[in-house]
Structure formats: structure tokens, C-alpha cells
């Protein structure tokens, strides 16, 4: 058990390292000369000035060394300054990350709840009309682009019906009342949940059906246990393990989807910030957000893994071999 947890943390660390390396290399290979762009063009600098600035910024050193220095700085909490407004990257990210966490957290909560409930329902009523309706809807859900559904929701509920605001987190001049938050959260959360829930429902439905055919379930049924006990003690625990694994695996997709939804709804989170700074080519901010998001994803993955461990007693015993099975 402890060995598994240790290995898992080790892996998380490498994950972070590799992501940071990819981000570093992409930004390094981007067209344009960072030194020249500081003063507005290469022609405004003498060769001597150019080399001096390059030396001061450490840009004349080998690329591996540059990466190392940058990485050490990241671990020490020095994430650099934004090119756009000169503020600390870490400060800006910390300001924005709360909004994103709220959005992802609430979406996850609803998504898991609805997927488990609806998936069980469809699985228990397999090959009935309700099952067909749920399955079709979940298929349509996974074929719908998040940004498009977001636009439709804005069109319907903000422009036509005027029920919910189309963008932002709080109205101007608001004192931060809970109802203001909730009204602004409704559309983005619905958008995330509706476009990501499809595969989860299908997965729960499938695992519920698998449990229904097992001998131990039939034995329990034959003993005449009440339906609720059957669902709570026999179906759910077995259906939840693959579900949790799947949530962990698809968490990066969910984070990516959230970014797009933030952009569409003008939600002041890290995703909107990321798209803004990407388009403005604010390199320190881009790299900072990539690292911050990776940390977020890795924490999500770790949580899912440990949850699986807690949900499934069989894994707890043979944990050291879980790494190798597929």
C-alpha cells in the first residue's frame, strides 16, 4: 500500500517534469527574438548591447541549463513577471485559480451525481424506452462541442429569455451575495456537465449491466434482498470503481473543456486567462499557467487513484502490481 502511494507520487513528479519540459521547449522554439522584442526590434541595439542583455538574461547559456534554472526558480516560487502588465505570474494565477476550482468542483459534483444516478437507472432498465432515451442523449452529449452548446445556452437563456447573465462571475457593484454567484454559475456549469457527461453515463450503465449478470448478484437477488440494499451494497460499489478510474483518466479532458467554457462565458478563471495570454504571446504567463494546470490535473489524478484504492479492497492487497496491469 505505502509502496504504491510512493510510486504514484514519484510518477506525479515525473509527469510535472515532462509537462514543464514540453512547455519550455515549445515556448523556446516559438518564432521571434525575445531580446529584440524587449526594445522593439533588433535594429535598435548594437551587437554589444545585444550580447550584454542576452548574458544578463541568461539566454546565451546552453538550453539545458536555462531549463534547469527556470525549473529551480519555479520550485522556489519565482514564476517570473508577466510581459503584458509586469505583475508576478504567481499572483495573477492565484487570483484566477479560485474561480476555475469552483467551476470544476461544482461541475464534477453534478456530473458524478447525475452520471451515477442516470447511468444506474438506464442499466437497471436496459432495453426499455427510458434506457434508449438516456443512451441516445449521452451519445449526443459526447458529440457536442462545448463552445457551441455554450453559445446556444447564451442565445436561449440570456438573449431570448433573459433568465441568466451571459458572462462574468458577479454583476458590477455586487457585494458578492451567494445568489449572484449561483445565477452566474448556472450556464457554465450546465454547459460543462452536458457536454462531458456522455461517456460517464455509458460507463456506469455498462458496469451496472455487468454486475447484473454476475453470480453473486443473482445469489443476493435470490435471497430476496430489498432492491435498495441490492443497489447500495452490490451494484454501486462494483460500478463505481471503473467509473472513478475513468474520471481520473479523463480529468485532463475535463480541465481542457472547462477552459473553453470559461472563454465562452467570460468566466474570470485560469482558462480564460490562458487563452488571453496565449493570444498575446505572454511567455512567462503561458508557462506559469501550463505548470499550474498540470499541478491541478496531477492532484486530480492522484485523488482519483487513491479513491479507487479506497473503493476497491482487492486492489489494496495487491497494490504493487497495479502499475503493470492494463
Amino acid at each position: 500500500m505505502w509502496r504504491f502511494i510512493l510510486i504514484r507520487f514519484f510518477k506525479a513528479f515525473f509527469q510535472l517534469l515532462l509537462t514543464s519540459l514540453i512547455a519550455f521547449l515549445i515556448v523556446k522554439s516559438a518564432p521571434g527574438d525575445p531580446i529584440a522584442s524587449l526594445v522593439g526590434g533588433r535594429e535598435f541595439m548594437t551587437d554589444h548591447d545585444y550580447q550584454r542583455v542576452a548574458h544578463n538574461l541568461g539566454l546565451d547559456r546552453p538550453i539545458a541549463l536555462q531549463y534547469g534554472t527556470w525549473l529551480v526558480n519555479i520550485f522556489q516560487g519565482d514564476w517570473g513577471h508577466s510581459i503584458r502588465d509586469g505583475r508576478f505570474v504567481s499572483t495573477t494565477i492565484l487570483e484566477c485559480i479560485n474561480a476555475t476550482l469552483i467551476l470544476i468542483g461544482i461541475s464534477c459534483f453534478f456530473m458524478i451525481g447525475i452520471a451515477v444516478f442516470v447511468g444506474c437507472w438506464a442499466g437497471l432498465r436496459a432495453r426499455t424506452n427510458i434506457d434508449y432515451i438516456i443512451s441516445s442523449l449521452s451519445l449526443i452529449s459526447s458529440a457536442t462541442p462545448a463552445f457551441w452548446l455554450g453559445l446556444l445556452l447564451i442565445l436561449l437563456f440570456s438573449v431570448s429569455l433573459n433568465w441568466f447573465p451571459s458572462s462574468g462571475q458577479l454583476p458590477i457593484g455586487s457585494d458578492g451575495a451567494l445568489s449572484d454567484y449561483l445565477v452566474h454559475l448556472t450556464l457554465p456549469v450546465s454547459c460543462i456537465v452536458l457536454t462531458h457527461i456522455g461517456p460517464y453515463i455509458r460507463l456506469v450503465r455498462g458496469s451496472v449491466q455487468d454486475v447484473l449478470t454476475t453470480d453473486y448478484y443473482r445469489a443476493a437477488q435470490a435471497r430476496g434482498l430489498p432492491k435498495l440494499v441490492l443497489i447500495k451494497n452490490y451494484i454501486l460499489p462494483n460500478a463505481l470503481t471503473p467509473f472513478t478510474v475513468w474520471i481520473g483518466l479523463t480529468f485532463p479532458l475535463l480541465v481542457g473543456g472547462t477552459f473553453i467554457v470559461e472563454w465562452v462565458f467570460g468566466w474570470p478563471g485560469i482558462g480564460r486567462l490562458f487563452l488571453q495570454v496565449s493570444m498575446a504571446r505572454d511567455y512567462p504567463m503561458i508557462m506559469g499557467i501550463v505548470i499550474a494546470t498540470s499541478v491541478l490535473v496531477i492532484i486530480g489524478n492522484l485523488l482519483a487513484d487513491f479513491l479507487v484504492l479506497w473503493l476497491n479492497p482487492r486492489l489494496r492487497r495487491k497494490t504493487s502490481s497495479t502499475n503493470d496491469n492494463d
Binding site: 514540453i22 512547455a23 485532463p252 477552459f259 496565449s278
Partner: peptide, 11 residues
């Protein structure tokens, strides 16, 4: 598989 690829693609 655990890297949020959308970010890399966008960058």
C-alpha cells in the same frame, strides 16, 4: 496521457 493536451495545442 495525463497531460492536458488542449493547453499544449493552444500554445
Amino acid at each position: 496521457l495525463a497531460i492536458p493536451m488542449l493547453l499544449i495545442v493552444i500554445v
